[in-house]
Amino acid sequence: MQPDRSTQQIAEEDQTRAQIYALLGRLLTSAPDADLLAKMAAFSGDESELGQALAALAATARKLDPARIRDEYQDVFIGVARGEVMPYASYYLTGFLHSKPLANLRGDMARLGIVRADGVPNPEDHIGSLCEMMAGLITGAFDAAADLPVQRRFFDAHIAPWALRFFADLEAAKNAVFYMPVAGLGRLFIDIEIQAFALVAQDQAA
């Protein structure tokens, strides 16, 4: 393996994108522990919408303890029969779990050399897993070093068609207190990504 994309070779904005994807991935696949919560409580933001979203997340992180957020995670994402939200591409795009969008994702994962671990209970089209995959594609950490066109195809195929609707639902979920500003950040960030990838498309067309 070549010493391909080390820290220095990734543009600053791409590092930040990877960090936000990694954060969203982490928060959407499980409740944060005390350590992460303390780090989030220290976020500060500027006047931009994104800055405001980070500040809102920090304010909420300061108010809640990990046990409270674990309970909330259970109510919002898991529930008794089902959670308040269903964070799966397949569900949003077809109304069913485990349908065509999941099959398409598995095909793309195979092409990109991304393999699912044994023992992960969620289907791969979970929004948190997709965010983790985007973070990995951006940093190039997992053999699947992906330039912008590759990232864009993955994003356009598996995230863009439904993530904004999902985050809007999460933001509005009855039990979402911690997850409301998480959803706010997710919605804003995905919207920024949609616009930014549209610029890549223009460049490619040019």
């Binding site: 080390s6 820290t7 930040t16 976020f43 933001g45 500027d46 950490a141 920024i192």
Partner: peptide
């Protein structure tokens, strides 16, 4: 879009890209 400023915030996570 404010990503530059956000960099300062999330940098606190120390989420360096994986070597």
């Amino acid at each position: 879009a404010g990503l530059g400023a956000a960099a300062g915030a999330v940098a606190g996570l120390g989420a360096e890209p994986v070597p």
